[in-house]
């Protein structure tokens, strides 16, 4: 897979970006903002995870979207535009259908953004950012991420060894299988605990917990990070001003109401579009630069 240009920036920039985008996505349910956020999420997810990953994701997301959008009018009867009455006499309103659609669109968008987050914020970046404020917790986090694949592998080793003496979880009747499975888990636990103590002693002998330690990855906050941060700060300022003026808000109940579009609200939309597409724009810019450098020689 291609290396993402946005992921090459400083972890702090990456983290602030995703925190802002996720928060805004959950906060603003204005249809224009939702459409922009969904577009940005899908474009970035395609660039980061490839077309197949997003197709797989959308296959799960679309039924979820339909179910959630349909469920809302069943439970919520607020709103003034009554379309028809259900069998039990409760009204189905246009407002609650629209609100259900908007809420489920928000949910789908959040999940697609999270898939981008997972691709960009790798665990060493997470460690780098939070290693200072919560060293013990981020160490636990990094160790667990490492242990899980290791234990799965060790389980395979134990299972092979047990199969040789007829005690695998695939051998025997139902109860015997269960008992063999539990025994394997028990063997694995003993191994894991002894192993862990050795790791802990090794950590201690190499100076874990002493001051002035360095981290594995070296990230420098350099000029392009500063430039991108300034750019993001400007966009965030415009968006917060927009939120303060009410351009980002929508009222669903009792009747749907949005502020009329003004020149300023168009500016806010443009800022949001730029923010949501920022990783994609950076990628395109880098690709263009790379191509132009190569074609010069």
């Amino acid at each position: 897979m291609r290396r993402s240009a946005f992921a090459a920036y400083h972890p702090f920039v990456n983290f602030v970006y995703f925190a802002a985008v996720l928060a805004f996505c959950m906060l603003w349910m204005h249809p224009v903002f939702q459409a922009i956020s969904l577009l940005g999420a899908v474009v970035n997810a395609v660039l980061l995870n490839g077309r197949r990953a997003i197709r797989f994701q959308l296959r799960f997301m679309l039924p979820l979207f339909v179910i959630m959008a349909a469920a809302n009018p069943m439970f919520s009867h607020a709103g003034v535009t009554i379309l028809f009455y259900m069998k039990d006499g409760n009204p189905v309103t246009l407002e609650s259908i629209l609100y259900g659609a908007a809420a489920s669109a928000m949910y789908v968008t959040v999940i697609v953004w999270f898939s981008c987050y997972n691709a960009v914020m790798t665990s060493d970046k997470f460690m780098y950012l939070f290693g200072r404020i919560m060293p013990a917790l981020s160490l636990i986090f990094a160790m667990v991420l490492r242990f899980v694949p290791r234990y799965m592998h060790q389980l395979k080793v134990i299972s092979d060894a047990q199969a040789c003496i007829g005690r695998d979880y695939r051998q025997g009747g139902w109860i015997r299988r269960a008992r063999n499975g539990i025994r394997m888990l028990s063997i694995m636990t003993t191994w894991a605990l002894e192993n862990a103590i050795e790791t802990a002693d090794s950590m201690k002998s190499r100076g874990y917990g002493l001051p002035n330690r360095t981290s594995f990855s070296i990230f420098r906050f350099d000029r392009r990070d500063r430039r991108l941060s300034a750019c993001m700060a400007g966009l965030l300022l415009v968006l917060v001003l927009g939120a303060a003026s009410g351009a980002n808000a929508i009222r669903y109940f009792p009747s749907v109401h949005v502020q009329a579009m003004t020149a300023f609200s168009v500016l806010v939309y443009a800022a949001y579009l730029t923010l949501c597409l920022l990783p994609a724009l950076i990628q395109t810019w880098e690709d263009w630069k790379w191509k132009s450098i190569r074609s010069r020689n």
């Binding site: 160490l139 160790m143 899980v148 694995m188 605990l193 103590i197 790791t199 802990a200 201690k204």
Partner: peptide, 16 residues
């Protein structure tokens, strides 16, 4: 270190 690592081991067993 020992305390941290035992917590990590138990969490990893739960996840596995």
């Amino acid at each position: 270190g020992r305390e941290i690592i035992v917590i990590a081991v138990l969490a990893a067993i739960a996840v596995a």
